[in-house]
């Protein structure tokens, strides 16, 4: 069963994402949380993660720097990453995809939008 890493500096947002996934019927075995990109790298290294959801604007290490660091690390650099962020401009979406993000969802989102986006990476019950 898949393990999902949620990286967001807002604990409330991490809980909302978690709850929406659980209620959507998407199959997830375990959630791992991180409050910034740096902690995200540590959690990705020490866990068998199947999917990463990552905010953009965070203290210490931003989401885009996390994506670049993970993709350039040579280890676990093929885990799918979906950016979940308020950054909604075409420029930022393009930058994220060019840096190695596999999906993009802008906040605020509905549970249906989250399910639709993550359905590309997770199985449904």
């Amino acid at each position: 069963m898949p393990k999902v890493l949620i990286i967001d500096d807002s604990s409330v947002m991490r809980k909302i994402i978690q709850r929406n996934i659980q209620q959507s019927g998407l199959l997830v075995d375990e959630f791992v949380e991180a409050g910034d990109g740096r902690e995200g790298l540590e959690k990705a290294a020490s866990n068998d993660i199947d999917l990463i959801l990552c905010d953009w604007n965070m203290p210490n290490m931003t989401g885009i720097d996390f994506v670049k660091a993970l993709r350039g690390s040579g280890q676990k650099n093929n885990i799918p990453i979906v950016m979940v962020t308020t950054e909604g401009s075409e420029t930022k979406i393009e930058e994220a995809k060019n840096s190695g993000a596999n999906g993009y969802l802008t906040k605020p989102f509905t549970p249906e939008q989250l399910k639709s986006k993550l359905g590309n990476f997770l199985l449904v019950k």
């Binding site: 807002s10 604990s11 409330v12 947002m13 308020t86 401009s89 420029t91 802008t106 605020p108």
Partner: peptide, 27 residues
Amino acid sequence: EVKDAIGEVSNMIAGNVKTKLMAQYGD
């Protein structure tokens, strides 16, 4: 958690305004 929620609400409002502004005024 209440402060976190208010911070995230402020962040989402400002973030969406930023996206609209960037289309007109750049980064």
